[in-house]
Nucleic acid binder design. Structure first.
Lengths: 216, 216
DNA sequence: ACATTAAATGACTCGTCGGTCAGTTATTTG
DNA sequence: CAAATAACTGACCGACGAGTCATTTAATGT
């Protein structure tokens, strides 16, 4: 990664690239964190991936923890924001909106290294309380409130039955997050399965589960 | 823990307790692993919890990895087996059976340190391929096949609609496992919620989602 | 009581990795 | 084309923790 952008074609040992370093380090860090988890990630490897020395990391980030927090901020928060924006002025069927959101999430999170973040947050929460709180407030709670809101909209519109929207949101989201976690952990040893088909099945079961009954 | 069983009332520095050591070490290990994760668990701490020295651990277990594998075998496999046994000769409503199983699981896994195991397996899978495969084969796949079987029974009985039982099982299980993971990680920083009510809600939505439609 | 056995330990080694810093070198400036 | 600047690095340090082993001592047997 970054090899071409960073290649030293002439006899120069390294280049000054202050502007690009942070972004390159961040994406290298995301990749390695995602693959190895937090504790097992060696900054030496992150540095090598980014085409710099370990010491250079410390020019741009205070510590391993700070680097990880920057990764979360850089790659996860925008995803949440985007989903919120998409739903902002939507008026159609909630079911269809949720399908669109799920599809977008599958492509932009699940099939990228971003899907490795939840795994780490889960694993390391007890070791980094401050980071855990940050993630909880800025990602998890926001996502939960967002989905709860969607479900409540669906109830108001008569699309869904009266139910505990908050629990329902938890139910839905947990599978979504778990799928990400799974993809970056045990899935590597499991037989392949069709993630897209599974997610559609999940949404289908969930929507039926909270839909207004045809007759009581 | 084990303090009373292990207390050195008289002026004796330690006692020979070959028979009880492994079990005590295992439950201490479960507790610490569950709390800290694999990498952050220090065998020194496990030893102290068990009331022995670190060197004693190595009398009974070959390595940290071997200890962890023993923990999984000791505490997780019996849970799977028990669920399989309970369903063995059952003939009633699948919905009710699933409710019973879920309740048992909540009490015997979720509310104990066993709930910490999934978190670790997820986090460390890529660092311990052999352990990951073991867990996948003996826990995850077995659980998946078990639930798939239950759903297929429900379909045969006309309780559930024709659907992809395998995907449905994945859907159901993922929330179950995620709840365990959650409980031992970020839940500590989140406001409390009623786990039992949530699980019931989850089961309710799920069962509705795969039930035969009243009318099409 | 004393010798023997083996359970248990304290103190050790060794490798690893986050973090630091004095020095090097690409780049800019006048 | 120096001289000044700052981006970058290699080589190092210190902490930490898994794993080892010579020694101690509780228990057993005679």
């Amino acid at each position: 990664m970054h090899v071409s952008a960073n290649s030293l074609s002439d006899s120069v040992r390294w280049r000054r690239r202050k502007d690009n370093r942070p972004a390159e380090i961040l994406s290298s860090a995301l990749k390695v964190f995602s693959l190895k988890g937090y504790a097992a990630t060696k900054l030496e490897i992150v540095a090598k991936q980014a085409g710099v020395s370990k010491a250079t990391l410390y020019l741009y980030f205070e510590s391993k923890e700070a680097l990880f927090k920057a990764v979360v901020t850089e790659f996860v928060l925008p995803q949440i924001k985007r989903a919120e924006d998409q739903a902002q002025n939507y008026t159609g069927s909630i079911k269809i909106l949720m399908h669109e959101l799920l599809e977008h999430w599958r492509i932009n999170v699940l099939e990228t290294d971003v899907s490795g973040i939840p795994k780490i947050m889960i694993a390391e929460a007890s070791n980094f309380p401050e980071l855990a709180t940050f993630y909880l407030d800025n990602v998890i709670k926001r996502a939960r409130e967002f989905v709860t809101h969607l479900i409540n909209l669906g109830i108001e519109k008569g699309e869904f039955r009266e139910c505990n929207a908050s629990y329902a949101a938890r139910s839905f989201i947990s599978t979504i997050i778990f799928t990400a976690i799974w993809e970056k952990s045990l899935a590597a040893y499991d037989e392949a399965y069709d993630t897209q088909a599974f997610l559609n099945s999940h949404l289908d079961i969930f929507i039926r589960g909270i839909s207004k009954d045809i007759q009581e």
